[in-house]
Amino acid sequence: MNKNEIFRKFMQNPLIKEKTGLTELQLQSISLFNDTPNRLIDVIKTTILNLESDQSIDSVARKINQSFKRETI
């Protein structure tokens, strides 16, 4: 299963609509590699894109926290 397939699994979770407020159509059109105007989906993407064998939990958590800071700036 590649990263894109993992991302699709998240987009197919019935909870995602409730948590993002996006429609099914909008969710289907979202790609792992394109920009998304939704912070939750951004966090999911950041995590999946960093799914590498040499990445630790702490380093990915750091990247997520940094992404929030960047957006704030």
């Binding site: 993992i6 999911i44 958590a61």
Partner: peptide, 16 residues
């Protein structure tokens, strides 16, 4: 299987 990827994401999510 690939379930370890999901376990990893879950652990990251819990941490943050």
């Amino acid at each position: 299987s690939d379930i370890n990827h999901y376990d990893f994401i879950k652990d990251v999510a819990y941490k943050v």
